[in-house]
């Protein structure tokens, strides 16, 4: 069984104005000039490489970190690399106010933990990069620095089934008799 409760350092995706970025599209997450890359490890180097102020994200993050993002994260194209680049860096979870529909599908299918926290961008001031966040996938409960609590949407059964199996295809194998 994979852990359903994690604890990690957060990165709050804010822009130069200090506000949380909304509508971060797949070109900002993983630019199309890198689409030829097929090696997972290499993909990580380009994560957020086209988002102003976050070009050096791959250098500063470490495995187990958690990303907080605004509304409609992952809008745009259907590229799987926009999810895989975070997996490659060992990012433990991605929490956003909302996700682009295809991005959500890709993330869930690849067993990458994502959670929706409604109203996140209004509360953005309460979170600082470097804070410690505890995340419970099963209940959706978030604990900030052991002080404050928030309620995100918990994993659905689908999400948990796929997460525990590894990815969508691995889940399919668990159904074989």
């Amino acid at each position: 069984m994979k852990p359903t409760r994690i604890r990690g350092r957060i990165w709050v995706l804010t822009g130069p104005d200090g506000q949380m970025y909304n509508d971060v599209d797949t070109d900002m997450i993983f630019h199309n000039r890198h689409l030829h890359i097929t090696n997972l490890a290499e993909m990580g180097q380009h994560a957020l490489g086209n988002l102003k102020g976050w070009e050096d994200f791959a250098q500063k993050c470490r495995p187990g970190d958690i990303i907080l993002a605004g509304a409609n994260f992952g809008a745009g194209s259907s590229r799987q690399q926009a999810v895989d680049c975070f997996r490659a860096l060992g990012i433990a979870a991605l929490i956003a106010e909302s996700f682009g529909a295809i991005y959500k599908r890709n993330a869930i299918n690849s067993g990458f933990p994502i959670l929706t926290l409604p109203g996140l961008s209004q509360m953005a001031g309460e979170f600082k990069s470097g804070d410690e966040l505890e995340v419970d996938f099963e209940t959706g409960r978030l604990g900030l620095n052991g002080e404050r609590e928030y309620q995100a949407e918990p994993f659905s059964r689908v999400q948990m089934d796929i997460y525990q199996a590894g990815d969508l295809f691995a889940y399919g194998k668990t159904l074989e008799t």
Binding site: K104, R105, I108, I162, L168, F169, G172, L175
Partner: peptide, 18 residues
Amino acid sequence: MGDQDIAFAFKTGKTWFE
């Protein structure tokens, strides 16, 4: 749906949907 989703549907006869 995408080709990965459909390959999975061929194999399992199910899919997930929001």
